[in-house]
Simulated scan of single mutants.
Amino acid sequence: MKPTLDVIQYSKTAHAAVRAAAEQEHDFGGWLADVLARAAADLGSTDALTAGRPGSWEADLVQRLVKGTVGRDDEYLADYRRQTP
């Protein structure tokens, strides 16, 4: 399946953000876990991050990273919800 222009664009944007963070963040793993936790909080669960391929090895690693941050049962997920001004 050929990626759409939207997929290409957000992938380029994500690549640039991840590369900049990898170059600048002292604790890149912690930064990445925080970003994924905030995205999961916005989506409502850590499972929402990997809903497209829940049994894949990539999904397993994402789940392990995020659940290590927000708790095995998402018990701290609400702490990562975006605060609206």
Rank of each mutant, 00 (worst) to 15 (best):
M1A: 14
K2P: 10
P3M: 02
T4F: 04
T4A: 10
T4H: 10
L5A: 15
L5S: 14
L5R: 11
D6H: 09
D6G: 10
V7T: 14
I8E: 14
Q9I: 11
Q9S: 10
Y10N: 14
Y10F: 13
S11K: 14
S11R: 15
K12V: 10
A14R: 12
H15N: 10
A16L: 10
A17Y: 09
V18F: 12
R19D: 13
R19V: 13
R19A: 13
R19T: 15
A20E: 13
A20F: 09
A21E: 00
A21I: 00
A21P: 00
A21S: 01
A22C: 02
A22W: 01
E23K: 10
E25A: 15
E25L: 09
H26L: 14
D27C: 02
D27R: 07
F28M: 04
F28Q: 03
G29S: 13
G29M: 08
G30Y: 05
G30K: 06
W31L: 00
W31H: 01
L32H: 01
A33R: 07
D34P: 01
D34L: 11
A39C: 11
A39R: 11
A39F: 02
A39Y: 05
A39E: 09
A39P: 00
A40K: 03
A40S: 05
L43K: 10
L43Y: 04
L43G: 01
G44T: 02
G44I: 05
S45W: 04
S45A: 12
T46K: 04
T46S: 15
D47M: 08
D47I: 02
L49H: 01
L49V: 05
L49M: 03
L49E: 06
L49D: 03
L49S: 02
T50S: 07
T50H: 05
T50D: 11
A51L: 12
A51M: 08
G52W: 06
P54Y: 01
G55Q: 12
W57P: 08
W57E: 15
A59I: 01
D60N: 12
L61R: 15
L61V: 07
L61S: 10
L61W: 09
L61T: 10
V62K: 06
Q63S: 09
Q63M: 12
L65E: 01
L65A: 06
V66M: 10
V66H: 07
K67R: 15
K67H: 10
K67A: 04
K67G: 03
G68N: 09
T69V: 02
V70M: 01
V70P: 02
V70Q: 01
R72L: 14
D73W: 08
D73L: 12
D74E: 04
Y76M: 12
L77S: 06
L77D: 02
L77H: 06
L77C: 08
A78L: 14
A78M: 07
A78W: 07
A78K: 13
A78E: 13
D79W: 13
D79S: 10
D79N: 15
R81C: 05
R82Y: 04
T84F: 09
T84H: 12
P85Y: 09
